[in-house]
């Protein structure tokens, strides 16, 4: 049983299926992404001919830089919102309260609602003719004419709000889990010492949360960068490209402009950004493990 040889090969057999999956379903296609980005390519014919990095020129145009800016706002605001809301909800739910179990189930629900459906339901809630929110505000006499949630200036905040709705559950789950590992005697002790709530969170809660908070934030960031269907269904990038995320740009280049090459060039940029995030998270994780 404890022969050296088999010991050495065993772990590789265990991870073999995932490796095979990785190679065929991700590595080969990723290689193709690089190939397509280097030439004149389209979906129907694949790679046609080398075009001396012409595809990457699009990445420097003001048109693309604007959508990069939009994506930056979307990701920063979305992730900040998710972190703040997730933390508040997790903290609020951490201690006993009436109906806590029920609340805990409810707050997770958006996580299991597929993105495509979240988009259609929110479009309905925010609809300017019949939508619930506009009706509510009108009935409360808070507004005289309906608010347009997906128009000039409001579209981006709206899709960010929907992102927060979608993304917060993951944050809540991750944080709730750690919060429960904080030994209650420490908390009681510090409370008896007369520490204020702020002191308590600064010296006890935050240090406990930090590693998980960090990881969850990075994962959420990577996920937010790749959001496509929610925004595409709600706004299709409009009005006037105000919600034109990089992911939508990738899709449009491939399917509307029939330009797979440029689409893949953008994809590589996204991949590099996501890769850097992955690397940070990974280093961070190893530091925790090594400590």
């Amino acid at each position: 049983m404890k022969q050296k040889g088999s010991r050495r090969i065993e772990p590789y057999l265990f991870i073999l299926p995932t490796i095979i999956l990785f190679i065929f379903v991700l590595a080969v296609p990723l290689f193709n992404v690089f190939k397509f980005s280097l030439g004149d390519s389209n979906i129907i014919e694949g790679f046609k001919e080398w075009n001396s990095f012409e595809n990457f020129e699009y990445l420097t145009t003001p048109r693309f830089l604007k959508s990069l800016g939009v994506t930056a706002v979307y990701v920063v605001c979305g992730v900040t919102g998710i972190v703040v809301c997730g933390m508040l909800v997790a903290l609020a739910l951490n201690k006993p309260m009436p109906l806590r179990g029920l609340f805990r189930s409810i707050v997770i629900i958006p996580w299991i609602v597929p993105h495509a459906f979240a988009a259609s339901m929110w479009s309905w809630v925010l609809n300017s003719q019949f939508g619930f929110i506009n009706q509510l505000l009108t009935k409360l006499n808070l507004i005289s004419s309906p608010i347009s949630f997906l128009s000039d200036g409001t579209a981006l905040p709206t899709v960010i709000m929907v992102r927060i709705w979608q993304g917060t559950p993951f944050m809540i789950i991750s944080l709730m889990a750690v919060l429960q590992t904080i030994p209650s005697d420490i908390e009681e002790a510090i409370e008896l010492d007369g520490a204020s709530a702020i002191q308590k969170s600064r010296y006890i809660t935050l240090p406990y949360l930090r590693p998980v908070l960090m990881t969850a934030t990075l994962i959420i960031t990577a996920w937010t960068i790749q959001i496509f269907d929610t925004v595409y269904i709600m706004t299709a990038g409009g009005p006037a490209r105000q919600t034109q995320l990089v992911a939508i740009e990738i899709y449009n280049k491939a399917f509307i402009d029939y330009d797979l090459g440029t689409s893949c060039a953008i994809a590589i940029l996204v991949f590099i950004i996501v890769g850097i995030i992955g690397f940070i998270k990974f280093k961070n994780e190893r530091m925790v493990e090594d400590a």
């Binding site: 128009s151 000039d152 409009g238 009005p239 006037a240 490209r241 449009n252 509307i256 402009d257 029939y258």
Partner: peptide, 22 residues
């Protein structure tokens, strides 16, 4: 023509800016 989708997209964006009085 085969590029019409891209042309429409661009025209559409510009018309939006026009209609928003931007």
């Amino acid at each position: 023509c085969p590029k019409t989708n891209s042309l429409w997209n661009l025209t559409g964006e510009q018309l939006q800016l026009l209609m928003m009085n931007n």
